[in-house]
Each structure stands twice: as C-alpha cells, then as structure tokens.
Nucleic acid binder design. Structure first.
Length: 384
DNA sequence: GTTGAGCGTT
C-alpha cells in the first residue's frame, strides 16, 4: 500500500506515493519519506470532520497514523522543521564560492556533501564545519600530582599535540584539569569519548563548554530516566548518536537509573522526548534542568521547562473536559516548531475540546515556550 | 526509582 504525500499547494504537480510497511506495523518510515522530502520531520493531514490539521505520530523514525490505518485517498503534507529543504546546501549549490576556511592549523577545504543523516536531522554545514575543526579539548580528572609531561605522554599516542597544559592556581597547585589540542582532526576524534589513564586515574577528554555551542548546555541536553544499570555510556552513544553529534554522555557512578546525553545542537532535543528502547529496555527521555538555579529566565525564553509545567497546572484547575482526546496525540511542537504563542496554542488545543476559559490565558505569558505535549497532558490527568 | 564534579586563555 502507498500513501500520497505532497507539499502544501503542490498536490497537482508533485504528489509522491510513499510505501507503507505493511509487513511490519503499518508504519511509514521517516527515512523513506526524507528521501523524497528533504528535511521533513513529520506529516500532517486535514481531519475530514473538523477540517483542522492533524499530526501523524512519529516514534523512533516511524510514522503512525492516529486512527491505525492510512487513508489511501488523503493527501498527507510534510511538516518541516528548520531549515526548509531549499535552504539545505547540497553539493554544487554554492560551489563557485570559496569556502576555504582559515584556521590556526592551516587551510581546510570542507567537503560539501549532504549525508542522509544531515538531511534527516536538519544538520547544516555550519554545524559540521564547526565540528570538524581541532579545538582545545578539556582534560578532566587529572591527578593533582600529574605533570604536563605525564599528560603529554598519554595523549601523544594519538597524534601530534600543539597544546598541553595543566591549569594551576596562583600557588602552582594543579586544579585537576587541563587542555590539549591536536594538530590533526583525526587525532581529536580518536581521543574524544574514550577513557584514558594517567597516574592511576581515569581522565575524560571533552569538547569544552566554551567551544561546544552558542546555546546553553542544558538546552542541548536530555535527561534519561528509568535506565537499567546494564545500559552503559557506550550504549547511549550508540543509540543517540544517530540523532546528532554528541558532546557529552554522563552516567553517575554508581549508577542511579538516570543519565545525560548532550548534543551540539538543541534542535533535536524536543523531538526525542518520550520513550525509547535501548538494548531492549524502555527508557524515558526528558529535558535536563539547568544545573544551577541562578539562571535568568529572560536570557533563554525558549527553554523554560519549569514554567511550562506550572502553566499546564493552570489549565487543569480551570478546565472541564467535554471529550476524550483522539487516539493519538500529535506533538504540538512538531506542527508549529519552536516559537509558540498563546493564541496559536489555544487554537491548536481546541481540536481536542479542551475548554479554555479566557482567564487561563493569563497563565501563558507570550514569551514562554511550551515543551509539553498532549501525551504528557493526558498522563498528567488533564483528560482523565 | 527522576537532575550531572570539575571548564581557560588568547
């Protein structure tokens, strides 16, 4: 069986039939879809009764129809998150521009080939370029008695170093961390995310926060819970690296059933919220809270998870519920991307007959973004 | 069952 997919307003010229995996679970593979619609992250369709858009559920790279079966006559419309396909630079797109970058290590000519991964995950070349360069790497966990030479000896095994230093206080006492930098990017790839031993201590090498991203760390980080002890950092790396470039993986020792994975980019984070199956275990992915409570909310208006939670308690107090939610719960943010506003949220939730007294609107300051979705709302008893 | 150690200098 096939479903018909076309960009909005292009049903006449460019409707493409996409196969449904009938052997398995009747889902449509997101990668099959992205082969035809670059940059697509979900599908939507018009609800024939109400006329409003409905989102198709996306889980683990597969699209599931809310009613359990696809309508062969419907036209499904791709939902894109940024950037739009026309903005994805493919090989040849801007070949006449000189894109040679100057770095302290010489000239690097970036390759301009969009991989499937990049297209699927809306990774653009700026991300890749930034990530392909050698940067100073932070070395954490250095013994206080280790010297520069000890550190150097360990890391020279992987290639020529252009920097190796241990940070010290004004008395010359080691602070237990330092920085290294390689001449070649391959060496950087070889040491990062691996365990190293110096003077009987294991040390970690990471991209330092100052180089990781322009976005605050916690917006790029997921919080994984209900995680069995058997899941290791390697398992998390293997599983989550398909969604983006990782800058950090953390599992406390001894294990406490949770962990963190940090990406280079915050944009993938929202799409990962919910259940995932890793090594046969179902784990829950949530947002990481900021490590310090002293952040200024106005600095990061798009990342105020705690505020979003209290907003939705606001609804619960007011709303009587006339009807149960539909069979599936499309993510609000998959339809409307990142920036939200009160009016648009209320319009969206009206399709579920959630009563929205005007007083409730006051609980939604317009500068705040809501990350919560209808599944979470249902779990919290809004519609029970 | 549910939130992380530590991040500099030019």
């Amino acid at each position: 069986m096939f479903i018909r997919v076309a960009d909005e307003g292009k049903q006449n010229e460019e409707t493409i039939e996409i196969p449904v995996d009938g052997d398995a679970d009747g889902s449509v593979s997101l990668s099959t879809l992205t082969a035809q619609f670059q940059g697509v992250s979900a599908l939507k369709y018009r609800n024939s009764e109400s006329g409003v858009w409905r989102g198709v559920r996306v889980v683990d790279g597969k699209l599931y129809h809310p009613d359990g079966e696809w309508d062969p006559n419907a036209i499904y419309v791709p939902v894109y998150s940024k950037p739009m396909p026309s903005e994805i630079k493919r090989k040849g797109f801007d070949e006449n521009q000189d894109e040679t970058m100057s770095t302290s290590l010489g000239q690097i000519k970036p390759q301009r080939v969009a991989t499937d991964f990049m297209i699927n995950n809306n990774v653009d070349y700026d991300d890749i370029d930034r990530n392909r360069r050698c940067v100073d790497l932070i070395v954490l966990g250095i013994s206080y008695r280790s010297l520069e030479d000890d550190v150097k000896k360990c890391f020279e095994e992987f290639g020529e170093l252009v920097l190796c230093e241990i940070k010290r206080d004004s008395n010359g006492q080691s602070r237990g961390f330092g920085f290294i930098r390689y001449k070649n990017y391959e060496s950087q790839l070889a040491v990062i995310n691996k365990r190293h031993f110096i003077d009987g201590r294991h040390v970690d090498v990471k991209i330092p926060e100052s180089k990781a991203s322009h976005e605050p760390e916690y917006t790029r980080k997921i919080f994984i819970t209900h995680m069995p002890d058997a899941i290791t950092t390697d398992d998390l790396r293997q599983y989550f690296s398909k969604y983006g470039t990782l800058t950090d993986i953390y599992i406390p020792k001894p294990a406490r059933s949770f962990g963190f994975v940090t990406f280079t980019d915050s944009s993938i984070v929202r799409s990962l919220l919910g259940k995932h199956v890793i090594k046969g275990c179902t784990v829950t992915v949530g947002l990481a809270e900021p490590k310090t409570k002293s952040y200024n909310i106005n600095d990061y208006p798009s990342s105020t998870f705690k505020k979003a939670k209290s907003d939705h308690r606001g609804i619960r107090t007011f709303a009587p519920y006339a009807a149960p939610p539909p069979a599936a719960y499309p993510y609000y943010h998959q339809q409307f991307e990142q920036a939200s506003n009160t009016d648009r949220m209320f319009t969206y939730f009206q399709q579920y007959n959630v009563s929205t007294p005007s007083a409730t609107k006051e609980a939604f300051p317009t500068h705040q973004q809501s990350y919560w979705n209808t599944t979470e709302a249902a779990a919290d008893g809004i519609w029970q």
